[in-house]
Design a protein around this nucleic acid. Structure first.
Length: 710
DNA sequence: TTAGGGTTAG
C-alpha cells in the first residue's frame, strides 16, 4: 500500500510524541501527543493516553474530547473522560461537567447524564438546560418538562435556550396550555425579538392546531430566517391548507429568501395534495433557477408532484435525468406508474430496482389493490412473504384489502392471527381494515365481535365500516340500531349518512330514510352535493319523487352526477316528461350531459313512447356532444323502437349497428316482430340469434311453431 | 458552553 506524505508525517509525529512516554513527561508533550491522535481520528487511543496520566489536563482539551465523544457516539470514552476529570481535577468547572452531561445525552445514555446532574456539587443554568435538552432529544419530552418545572421551583431563571428546548418538547407532546404559559414568560423576560424562539412558537402553535396563532407569531417576527419560513410552510401543509403553504412559499421567494431544500419539498407536497400543476411547475422553475434539481429531497418531491398531478411523463423525465437514483426516487416513480393504473410498467421498474424496502413492496402491492387486480395482488403477497421479512401496518392493511377483494375470509383469519401475534391489534388502520374485511366477506358476526374487541381504539371510520357491512348485506334495521349506538361514542360524518341513505334506498325503507334526513337537519349537518344525491336517490327509490325534487332544487350547485341521479329517479318513477324538462333546465344551467344522462333521456323516451325524440337525442349524442354511444344506449334504442312498433326503423337500426347484435338484442327484436307480425324480419332475427346462441334454439323453434300454427 | 425547523417514496 502506498504511504502518502500525510501518513508519513503522522508516523514521525507519533514517534516524536511517544518517545518521551518512558520518561517523566511534561504535560505539554502528552497533550501534544493526544492532539496528534485526535487529528488522525484515533479518539480511543487519545483517551487511553489521557487516562494513563494522573494529572489534570487543560480544560480546553477535555472540552474538545467531550465534543468528539458526542460526534462519534463514544460512550466508553466519555465515561473514561468524566472519570479522569472528576478524579484528577480538584475543582472541575461546571461548564465541563455540563459538556459531560451533553455528551451522555447525545450518546443516548440518560442514566449517566442524570446521575452526573444529580451529583454535581454545583450547577448553573447551563446544567439544567443541557439536562432538559438531553431528555428532549431522546424522546423523553415529559421528563424534560418535569425538569423545567423543577428548575422553576428551585428559583433558577430560565433563559432563551431553556425556552427553545422546552417549546420543542411542548410541540412533541402537544402541550398547548404550557406553551401559552411559556409564551407569556418569553415576552415577560424580554426575549420577544429572538428569532429562534419566534420560530419555536410558530412551530408549537402550528403543531397544536392553532394555526391562526402560529401565523400571528410568524407575522410578528421582525427578521424571519429560512427556518422560520420553513416552519410556517410546513405547518400549513400539515393542517391540510396546501393553498396557504404554497402562497407562503412564493411570498418567501418574493422577499428574496433562499428556501431550504425541505421548504421546496413542503411546497411541492402541498401542490401534490391539491393537484396544483401550475404552481408545481412554477416551483419546478424556481428549483431549476436555484440549482436545487440535484437535491435528493427536492427531486423526489418533484417526481411525486408530477405523479399526483397526472403528468407521469414529466415525472419520468426527472427520474431519468437524475445523476444518482436512490431508493426513494425509485420508489416514487415506480409508485407513480402503479397508482396511475400502469401496473405492468410499475412492475418492470420494481423488478429493476437496485434495492427495495417495505415501502417499495407496499407501493407495488397498493397499485394492484387500487386497480382491483386481485390475482396479481395475491401472487405478489406470496412473493413478498418469500422474499422479505419486512411487514408493517400498511402491508397488513393491503393484504386485508386483498382478502376482502377475493372474499377469502379464511386467509383473512390467518392475517388476523398474524396481527394478534405481532402486536398490530392496537393499530387503528389495521383494526379498521380487519373490520372491513370481515364485513365485505359477509361474516357479520366476526365483524361485530372484532368491532367490540377494538373498544378503546375504534373511531368514526370503524363505526362507518360496521354500518356499511350491515347495510351492504341487507341488514338495514341492524345498521340503524348501530347508528343509534354510535351517537353515544362518535360523531357521525357524511360517509355515515351516505351509507345509511343508500341502505334505506336499497331496502325502500322510507321511514328510516326520513329519520336520517331529519337527524341531519336537526344537527346542522351541511347537505352537500353528495348527500343531496343520496337523499334524492333514497326518496326516488321510495317513490317520493316530490321530496326528491325539492331537495334537488334547493341545492346551491348541481353537478352532472346529481342531475343524473334526479333524472334516473324520475325514470324509475315513470316520469318521462319531467326528465325531458330537467334536461332543458340542465342545459340552461350550463351543465354538460354525459353518457349516463343520455341513457336517462332514452329511458324517458321509452316511458313516453317518444320514438322520434329518442332518435333525435341518440343522434345528437355523438353529433353535438361527442359522446360515443355505448351498449346501453343501443339497447335503449332497440327497446324504444320495439315498444313503439317502429319496425322499419328498428330493422334499419339493428342492421347498421357498428358491432354484432347481442343475444339479448336479437331476442328483444324477435319478440317485437312477433308482436307486430313482422315475419320476414322476425325470421332474420331468429336466424341471427340461433347462430349466436344455439343452446336456446329449441325455444325459438317452439315460438316459431306456435306462430305458424296460429 | 447549553436552543428552533426539515427526512422527499406506500
Amino acid at each position: 500500500m502506498a504511504v502518502n506524505a500525510a501518513s508519513m508525517l503522522n508516523r514521525l509525529l507519533q514517534y516524536k510524541t511517544h518517545k518521551p512516554q518512558n520518561q517523566p513527561n511534561s504535560l505539554k508533550s502528552v497533550t501534544q501527543s493526544i492532539l496528534t491522535h485526535l487529528k488522525s481520528g484515533r479518539l480511543q487511543k487519545a483517551v487511553s493516553i489521557l487516562f494513563a496520566y494522573p494529572e489534570p489536563f487543560p480544560h480546553s482539551l477535555y472540552a474538545r474530547l467531550f465534543h468528539l465523544c458526542s460526534a462519534n457516539d463514544a460512550i466508553v470514552e466519555a465515561r473514561k473522560l468524566e472519570s479522569h476529570l472528576v478524579t484528577f481535577c480538584p475543582l472541575p468547572p461546571v461548564f465541563l461537567l455540563n459538556r459531560a452531561i451533553e455528551t451522555y445525552g447525545k450518546c443516548g445514555c440518560l442514566v449517566d447524564a442524570r446521575e452526573l446532574f444529580d451529583e454535581m456539587p454545583e450547577r448553573d443554568g447551563g446544567s439544567w438546560n443541557t439536562m432538559i435538552t438531553a431528555y428532549a432529544r431522546n424522546g423523553f419530552q415529559e421528563k424534560a418538562l418535569c425538569l423545567f418545572s423543577e428548575m422553576n421551583r428551585e428559583g433558577i431563571f430560565p433563559n432563551e435556550i431553556t425556552f427553545a428546548s422546552v417549546l420543542g418538547s411542548c410541540g412533541a407532546v402537544l402541550e398547548l396550555v404550557l406553551s401559552r404559559q411559556i409564551h407569556a414568560m418569553v415576552v415577560k423576560y424580554g426575549y420577544s425579538n429572538n428569532v429562534v424562539l419566534g420560530s419555536s412558537l410558530v412551530d408549537v402553535y402550528g403543531k397544536c392546531g392553532v394555526i391562526s396563532d402560529a401565523r400571528r407569531i410568524f407575522d410578528q417576527i421582525e427578521n424571519p430566517n429560512d427556518v422560520s419560513w420553513n416552519v410556517i410552510v410546513r405547518r400549513y401543509l400539515e393542517i391540510g391548507d396546501g393553498k396557504e403553504a404554497v402562497s407562503m412559499f412564493f411570498r418567501m421567494f418574493r422577499e428574496d429568501f433562499t428556501p431550504l431544500n425541505f421548504t421546496f419539498s413542503n411546497a411541492l407536497v402541498a401542490c401534490s395534495s391539491m393537484s396544483a400543476l401550475k404552481e408545481g411547475m412554477q416551483i419546478h422553475g424556481v428549483v431549476f433557477k436555484m440549482n436545487f434539481e440535484r437535491d435528493k429531497v427536492v427531486s423526489s418531491s418533484l417526481i411525486g408532484m408530477y405523479v399526483k398531478c397526472g403528468i407521469l411523463e414529466s415525472a419520468r423525465m426527472i427520474f431519468d435525468q437524475l445523476g444518482s437514483k436512490d431508493l426513494i426516487s425509485w420508489t416514487a416513480i415506480m409508485s407513480g406508474y402503479a397508482m396511475s393504473g400502469r401496473t405492468r410498467e410499475a412492475r418492470e421498474l420494481f423488478n429493476m430496482m437496485p434495492e427495495r424496502n417495505v415501502i417499495s413492496w407496499n407501493a407495488m402491492l397498493a397499485g394492484y389493490t387500487h386497480l382491483f387486480q386481485w390475482e396479481d395482488a395475491l401472487k405478489f403477497v406470496f412473493l413478498m412473504r418469500r422474499m422479505t421479512k419486512e411487514i408493517d401496518h400498511v402491508t397488513l392493511v393491503l393484504i386485508l384489502n386483498v382478502c376482502a377483494g377475493i372474499s377469502d375470509v379464511e386467509m383473512g383469519k390467518q392475517v388476523h392471527g398474524f396481527i394478534y401475534r405481532h402486536g398490530f391489534c392496537s393499530n387503528i388502520f389495521v383494526g379498521n381494515a380487519l373490520l372491513d374485511m370481515y364485513g365485505k366477506c359477509g361474516t357479520l358476526n366476526s365483524a361485530r365481535v372484532w368491532f367490540y374487541q377494538m373498544s378503546q381504539e375504534r373511531d368514526t371510520v370503524s363505526w362507518n365500516a360496521l354500518l356499511t357491512s350491515y347495510a351492504r348485506h341487507h341488514r338495514s334495521e341492524q345498521a340503524m340500531t348501530f347508528f343509534n349506538e354510535m351517537q353515544w361514542e362518535s360523531r357521525p360524518c357524511k360517509f355515515t349518512f351516505g351509507t345509511l341513505l343508500a341502505a334505506c334506498a336499497n331496502m325502500f325503507a322510507l321511514n328510516h330514510g326520513k329519520q336520517i334526513h331529519g337527524f341531519m337537519v336537526r344537527n346542522g349537518y351541511e347537505l352537500d352535493m353528495v348527500i343531496r344525491g343520496a337523499l334524492v336517490d333514497m326518496y326516488c327509490k321510495c317513490r317520493c319523487v316530490l321530496y326528491a325534487l325539492t331537495i334537488f332544487k334547493e341545492a346551491a350547485s348541481r353537478d352532472v352526477v346529481l342531475w343524473n341521479t334526479m333524472i334516473f329517479g324520475c325514470c324509475h318513477n315513470g316520469r318521462g316528461r319531467e326528465v325531458l324538462e330537467l334536461v332543458g333546465l340542465m342545459e340552461e344551467e350550463g351543465v354538460k350531459p354525459d353518457h349516463v344522462t343520455f341513457q336517462g333521456i332514452l329511458l324517458a323516451c321509452i316511458c313516453e313512447h317518444e320514438a322520434e325524440l329518442g332518435k333525435q337525442y341518440f343522434n345528437s349524442m355523438s353529433n353535438d356532444y361527442c359522446i360515443i354511444p355505448r351498449l346501453e344506449h343501443y339497447e335503449c334504442m332497440i327497446e324504444l323502437y320495439s315498444q313503439c312498433g317502429c319496425m322499419e326503423e328498428l330493422e334499419k337500426f339493428i342492421k347498421s349497428l357498428p358491432f354484432e347484435p347481442t343475444v339479448a338484442m336479437l331476442t328483444r327484436v324477435f319478440d317485437a316482430c312477433e308482436k307486430h307480425g313482422a315475419v320476414r324480419f322476425g325470421e332474420w332475427a331468429a336466424e341471427q340469434h340461433n347462430q349466436l346462441n344455439p343452446s336456446t334454439l329449441l325455444r325459438f323453434e317452439l315460438k316459431d311453431r306456435r306462430k305458424m300454427g296460429r
